[in-house]
Amino acid sequence: MKVRLRGFGSIEVEGREYDHDIVIEGGRIRKRKKGPSKPYRGEFGHTPLSAEEELPWGGSRLIIGTGVYGSLPIMPEVTKEAGRRHVDLTAIPTEDACHLIADLNKREVHAVLHVTC
């Protein structure tokens, strides 16, 4: 699947540019809805990724792009939920996540990609 971080705040997937965080679920792309995680912002200094969001749990692996500088906080409940579901969790800076995704068939891609910090 062709995914590349174009720069701070911008990502391109299959030729289409997005200026917000995205979720890829089996090749389908949607905007990340951070609302359920916003109450935790004060605790982390940034809106974290929480298990309360609609995460793409449909595969055997969940790739989390943690931002340009790798600063997206991931709440421990996300890791626990991945273990409960027997999903391999890979959390790496977004540019590295894009390189990882590039080697996958789009049906295999289950990812949350943060495009800023």
Rank of each mutant, 00 (worst) to 15 (best):
K31C: 07
H114P: 06
C98M: 05
V109G: 07
K80D: 15
H114G: 05
L89E: 11
S71Y: 14
I11P: 07
R32V: 08
Y69K: 14
K33L: 13
I64R: 02
I63H: 04
A91L: 09
T66Y: 02
I63P: 07
T90F: 04
G27K: 09
V115Y: 01
G67P: 03
E54P: 03
D19I: 09
A82V: 04
R107S: 14
D21M: 07
R41V: 07
A97L: 09
D88Y: 12
E81Y: 00
L113Q: 04
G70Q: 07
L62Q: 12
D21G: 02
Y69Q: 08
R16G: 00
T47R: 00
G65H: 03
T79L: 05
D103T: 15
V109M: 08
L49T: 05
K106R: 14
V112R: 11
H110A: 08
L55F: 12
L72G: 02
A102V: 02
I24E: 06
D21F: 07
L113Y: 08
P56M: 08
V78H: 02
A51Q: 07
F44T: 06
M75F: 02
V112Q: 13
T66F: 02
R85S: 08
D103N: 11
K106E: 15
T94M: 09
G45S: 05
I101C: 04
H46P: 08
T66K: 00
V78A: 00
P93Y: 08
F44H: 05
Y18V: 10
K80E: 15
G58D: 12
G35D: 15
V109P: 10
I29R: 01
H46V: 13
G45I: 01
R16L: 11
G65Y: 00
A97S: 07
K106D: 14
Y18H: 15
E81F: 00
P36V: 04
H114Y: 15
E95Q: 13
P48M: 10
P48I: 04
T79F: 06
E43W: 04
E25R: 15
N105C: 15
K33V: 13
G83V: 01
G45E: 03
H114S: 07
V112W: 10
R16N: 06
I11H: 08
R30G: 11
S71G: 09
D103H: 15
Y69G: 02
V115C: 00
I29P: 01
L113E: 09
P76E: 03
P39V: 01
H20F: 13
D96H: 09
G27S: 08
Y18Q: 13
G26R: 12
I101D: 03
A97K: 05
L89K: 04
D21W: 06
G59E: 13
G65M: 01
A82D: 05
P56L: 10
H99E: 11
R107A: 15
A91P: 11
C117G: 03
S37K: 00
R61N: 10
K38G: 09
H20Y: 13
R85E: 12
E81D: 00
C98N: 06
E52I: 00
P93T: 09
E52Q: 03
I74L: 13
T47H: 01
I64Q: 05
G27F: 10
E25Y: 10
L100V: 12
K33W: 10
I64Y: 06
S37E: 01
P39G: 01
K106N: 11
K33M: 14
D96S: 12
D103P: 06
H46D: 12
